[in-house]
């Protein structure tokens, strides 16, 4: 009893109402969803069993993971180049680049998605121009397929890739790269053996961030995939609003939640490790 009283700072009393409110409003529904997944339509693990018997469910699952992985790799590669350019150009250019990056951050995902349709759609700017120049006779199918979804998602995710990498790269001591060159390493060797390992924490951080965010993508696949690319978030909404199979939707949502939590756990382990070997020079 004494121990509890000691560890309970009176400050907790002040925040307790809000804490309870958050728990009730946040944990409650989540528990409700998990409860639904094992009780609707009938009690038992029937919803989870569907994962192994339903081909369409499995396909949606793998499509989602594939698209998320490609999005992650694509945006981290592009983001890495952009962050590298930002760190190593002049201060003035850097602030321009940062402004552009933040502007794209502020534009709604809906606007950005539809502007890709205007650009790359069947009668979009690019196809029209290429046809007008006589380069192609048939419009190229950029949109309403997986390519379209990837273009839209990678574009949306790039700022999320750049920011953690930028922080990581800015913290590097550039004399270490000078030392590498001085010791006889070529530019390529210096990049592979010194720069890349030192930016690994940033790469891991932005990869996990993007992968987790991508899992829940709804608008972009729905618009740019043209109904042909079904990802898990869209499927959940169909289960909820159209077919009313709340149990299946709850099961998928639960799986996503636990998948994300597992990844966050791995991330926290990794970032702590990185602080040990990258923290001080």
């Amino acid at each position: 009893m004494n121990a509890i009283r000691k560890s309970l700072h009176p400050g907790w009393l002040l925040v307790a109402p809000f804490l309870l409110l958050v728990i009730a409003l946040y944990l409650g529904p989540i528990l409700n969803i998990l409860w639904l997944s094992v009780t609707d339509p009938e009690p038992g693990m029937g919803n989870y069993r569907k994962l192994f018997v339903s081909d369409s469910l499995l396909r949606i699952f793998w499509t989602t993971i594939r698209i998320c992985l490609i999005t992650t790799v694509g945006s981290v590669l592009l983001g890495y180049s952009i962050a590298y350019a930002m760190v190593h150009c002049h201060q003035k250019q850097k602030s321009y680049m940062l402004t552009l990056l933040l502007v794209s951050f502020w534009i709604s995902i809906l606007v950005r998605t539809f502007s890709w349709l205007m650009l790359l759609g069947h009668r979009g700017l690019v196809n029209n121009a290429l046809e007008g120049m006589g380069v192609i006779s048939e419009p190229i199918a950029f949109m309403r397929n997986e390519l379209g979804v990837l273009i839209g998602m990678i574009h949306y995710m790039i700022p999320y890739a750049v920011l953690p990498l930028l922080v990581n790269m800015q913290s590097l001591d550039m004399r270490v790269m000078d030392a590498s060159r001085n010791l006889g390493a070529s530019g390529q060797q210096t990049f592979m053996r010194v720069y890349l390992p030192l930016t690994l924490p940033g790469i891991v951080a932005s990869s996990l961030l993007i992968f987790i965010l991508s899992l829940g993508f709804y608008v972009t696949p729905a618009v740019l995939g043209g109904g042909k690319v079904l990802m898990i978030a869209e499927y959940i909404s169909v289960q909820l609003l159209v077919t009313l199979k709340w149990g299946t939707a709850a099961m998928l949502a639960g799986l996503m939640l636990f998948g994300v939590l597992a990844m966050l756990y791995i991330m926290s382990r990794f970032m702590k490790l990185s602080a040990v070997f990258g923290g001080s020079a």
Binding site: R175, V176, D178, S180, F277, A281
Partner: peptide
């Protein structure tokens, strides 16, 4: 100056 050792 500051040694610039490879921290990793």
């Amino acid at each position: 100056q500051g040694y610039a050792l490879f921290p990793h």
